[in-house]
Design a protein around this nucleic acid. Structure first.
Lengths: 222, 222
DNA sequence: TCTATTTATTAATAATTTATCAAACTCAAA
DNA sequence: TTTGAGTTTGATAAATTATTAATAAATAGA
């Protein structure tokens, strides 16, 4: 799968340089210069990494971090000129994943970004969850070594479950992540899609938690 | 689950201080002063985080990191007096997860350790009350290691009891916390719900205090 | 022991959520 | 233009969960 990174930084020179170095790694980068734009981009698209400056016009980086943690758990790297401990502690309290102070070498920024992406599994070619293996590049799927043929939509859904194995995916999350936050249609589409997906899976590895959502059960196997 | 951390640092003063601060978080810490001891500890026990100094007698930290990555993918935080970029880049190339340079504040070390633990799922929160364990994120429930399947409402009720283990929950509290302060219905709903919940629990761990309320008994076990 | 009160139990019903299925629609490839 | 795989819709069935209401049992106080 493609790696998408969001950079929020108001200094054009730095923004430009950061983007360039990240793109050199083959990653896709969206950039903006203030917190509000950042937040609206986050609603539109799934990112695997977010890089935030702290001092921003309008909503600052700390505030933005706090707000985005309400809606997603994407790794966040804070990148700032504020080198005092208080600001760093505050960032980690707001559930940042890393914090580097300017000036920093671009190589190190890239390496730290890479470390976060590696740890979150975004750089893996395949996603494993119990006996289930997904290959996002080819849409190939295996369960316990046996091939399963999924349609693109089915694959997307199963990929979402596999990346969050053991966690509950609510109907709302499913709708926004698979059909987009602005999906107008009927919620029944979830049930129809889940039925088709489950029919192709060998056993009931997707549990229904009535009134809450679905959950891919990953047994203590492999 | 318990969090186990391995610290490899030859400077006794620093080792001591690091251990003390980590233990203050409720984490279990093993420490040693050289790479070879570190490696043999890694073979013996599963750690959720490894903290490595680079300059060590014998096998140094970079070398140790390279070797341990052959056998495990545990998050590694490098902690070193070497502040040059080359060493930091090398650490990340050897698949370190973080790198901080001495001198650093203990608070920041702890926060960074916490960030790594959080990201790797080692801190996932569960509610424990005696032999009862609740996982609010997945609605999973265990008693003495055995799975119990609860409906969302049953789970909510049990969660309230578990969060207040040993304390009496009055009927009024139950009603307002579970059914909302504006619940119009019959109070008999409490009795019906409690009956169903108790039927699923292996023994009578919820005591009735007549005229007052209910109380989750937490034996002096675990 | 008797009585009033509280709680437990049960079955029936209501409400809600999810599963299923067939038909209609879309869109790209032949 | 036709075909067909893939997706979506909407109607209906099935299942689960929540609630009520009636009755039984237990408890504490007189």
């Amino acid at each position: 799968m493609n790696v998408n990174i969001l950079v929020v930084e108001d200094d054009v020179i730095i923004q430009d340089m950061v983007c360039k170095f990240l793109q050199k790694e083959g990653w896709f980068v969206d950039a903006c210069a203030n917190g509000d734009d950042g937040l609206s981009l986050l609603y539109d698209k799934a990112y695997q990494l977010i890089i935030l400056d702290i001092m921003l016009p309008g909503t600052n980086g700390q505030e933005l971090l706090k707000q985005l943690r309400q809606i997603c758990d994407t790794p966040v790297l804070m990148m700032t000129a504020l080198s005092d401990d208080a600001n760093q502690l505050r960032a980690f309290n707001n559930q940042a994943d890393d914090y580097i102070t300017k000036p920093f070498s671009m190589q190190i920024l890239v390496k730290r970004a890479q470390a976060l992406l590696r740890r979150s599994g975004a750089l893996k070619k395949e996603i494993q969850a119990g006996k289930l293996v997904l290959f996002p590049e080819t849409y190939a799927t295996e369960y316990d070594g046996n091939k399963i043929t999924l349609t693109p939509k089915e694959f997307e859904i199963l990929e979402l479950f596999a990346r969050n194995a053991g966690k509950i995916i609510s109907h709302e999350t499913l709708l926004t992540r698979i059909w987009g936050y602005d999906f107008e249609g009927n919620e029944g589409i979830i049930h129809a899609s889940m039925k088709k997906l489950r029919d192709k899976l060998p056993c009931s590895i997707i549990r229904t938690i009535k009134g809450v959502g679905y959950c891919l059960e990953v047994g203590g196997d492999d």
